[in-house]
Design a protein around this nucleic acid. Structure first.
Lengths: 151, 151
DNA sequence: CAAGATTGAGAGTTCAATCTTC
DNA sequence: GAAGATTGAACTCTCAATCTTG
């Protein structure tokens, strides 16, 4: 599904169970996790980027401009253009012209989009609870601190 | 550079410093780390996938078939075809026919490829040591265990 | 000239289909 | 038929350039 392309070759110790965790073993694990997320979403006909857009729209309750969406997903505007293209092709979202600003185009979620979003959010919630039950409270504290240092 | 597309919308608590780490905050951190790796490699004219191929070739000391490379990088063969296309365009690698098996094509590293690989490996080594010095031994143990559970 | 959106090109990835060779 | 490689199509993403509107 995915490949930890950055890892094994560059660091032969990548998968060593006893050695120190390299940045690559961390990335490898993250990719594995990411794969699980994508798998769970595939089952409901979504991907992470698509769910993110849909969720932003649901949470906001109104149509959002593509620039606004791009800012929220921390991506470039041209990316949003294409993402919304694909979402619109699936009728999960509709493009509507903005009356105030004629440069702007808003994305509006459709009823089908709402259903899909709910299914996606449920799938993620399940994954999330699995994850939480497999990580002790103290481990979570360590993880949290490490994560903060990384970002 | 990258965006944590899977995150913020799906889980408003993604960046909460006090709350539990969600799978998304983990992925977010991993993406940040990944960005650093890519940045470091960009400085020497490489990317992670390219470095991985080059390093496999250097470590093995011989030309390797595309299938073999795909297996080592845990990716699909068609991906390797394209990766090697780009590597070959930069003259970091050369395609050579396999005399034994006429179906097979091997990738052979060039002198320029070796130089580039060395530069990439050095850049990664620096990142690695920075990382190691920022994570305590006990934290590493926790991280290692968590990682194992995830993969 | 800024801002909003789009287009085109390219990197990286996957899958399905195809071609040649074993 | 199965294995090695390639091609074509799709998705996600970035950057640079462009067009329209403010």
């Amino acid at each position: 599904m995915y490949n930890s392309y950055v890892n094994d070759m560059a660091t032969p110790s990548s998968t060593n169970p006893a050695g120190k965790p390299t940045i690559f073993s961390l990335l490898e694990a993250a990719h594995a996790l990411e794969d699980r997320v994508e798998e769970a979403l595939e089952a409901v006909g979504l991907s992470s980027p698509k769910l993110s857009v849909l969720t932003a729209l649901v949470e906001d309750g109104t149509a959002l401009s593509l620039s606004e969406l791009a800012a929220r997903l921390s991506c470039v505007k041209s990316n949003m253009t294409q993402l919304v293209d694909r979402l619109e092709a699936e009728q999960l979202v509709r493009r509507v012209d903005c009356p105030n600003d004629r440069r702007s185009v808003k994305a509006e979620i459709t009823p089908e989009g709402k259903k899909r979003q709910a299914a996606g959010a449920a799938a993620i919630a399940k994954l999330e609870s699995d994850f939480a039950s497999n990580v002790s409270v103290s481990d979570r504290a360590v993880l949290q601190r490490l994560l903060g240092a990384l970002t």
